[in-house]
Amino acid sequence: MAAQRCGQEAHLALPGLEKVTQFEGAGSKDHVPGQLTSLLLAPCSYFLYYMIVFFQSLISGILIGGVYALIGIGLTIIFGVMRVINFAHGDILMIGMYMTYFLFTVFHIDPFVSIVITIPLMFLFGAFLQKVFINRALNALPQNQILLTIGMGLVMSNTVMLAFTSDYKILTTTYSSSSVEILGISVSEPLVVSFAITVAITAALYWFLYKTDMGQAIRATAQDREAAQLMGINVKRMSIIAFGIGSALAGTAGALISPTYYIFPQVGSVFTLKAFVITVLGGMGSIVGATLGGVLIGVAESVGGVYIGSGWKDVIVFILFLLVLLFKPSGLLGTSKD
């Protein structure tokens, strides 16, 4: 066991080195010229591999991070307005994925186009959840709210399982594994598109929250629920809208990763925990923070996966999370309210 792990560590430390040594051993008799060149090029190629692996992980981290950001923004809006930790967030995302899947397989609508349908539907779904369930528990103890959303998540994922079985659904588009190569680094095309859509949606959301009356009202509610109520803002209505927006964003994120990921009823749990980490990292309720947090987590996972081992990805993320909680509890960009 120990030997096995040692071997693994050696690879982690020196990617590319194996190749060189192996070449020397294997080709020493019949390929003398080859060996010479390889010896000359060894330090050079070692460096090149090193750089390629690094940038590869950095870029895919940033691109994946864009989608994470969208999930995080959704959660942060919900938390900001309601102070409710929504543990069903990943399951809402899962509903968005199934919606995208059926729009694609039944109506042949491209996932990136179908968000036009997914967004309003998911908004209504979220608003419904808020009106029927969460609004009843707004004054409950926080642990009860958490368990309520956990229960809702279980109901969602298991209803989907009964309806569509637990089979993995794979959504294959013509571009699902397409990539462009830039300087030896391959960049996934669907990820680039989804990143661009994320940026556009985030920008639109900003405009909505800062430039429209309703957006201002939502922000006021998030800042101080009671004061907002005194100022005549319909807080319950704002909560419904906020949960709707949060769900629409989670659903969109689901739609955007569908072409490059897979879909099954329990897929949400992967994203729920990530969403929290992102939100806390950026500062609960801060949209810029969540955007930054998403990208940060994407990069931490990707780069950490290369240099520490892909099995440790989650540990890296959680340790980062605890550090931020302890040393800057208001989040990287949040303003302290205490």
Partner: peptide, 24 residues
């Protein structure tokens, strides 16, 4: 409050993933 809840989850997850990755 909620921060404690999240931190307790994070710690437990760190234990789970570590147990997975420390076969020795």
């Amino acid at each position: 409050g909620p921060y404690f809840v999240l931190a307790s989850i994070a710690v437990a997850e760190i234990f789970r993933v570590s147990a997975l990755n420390l076969p020795g």
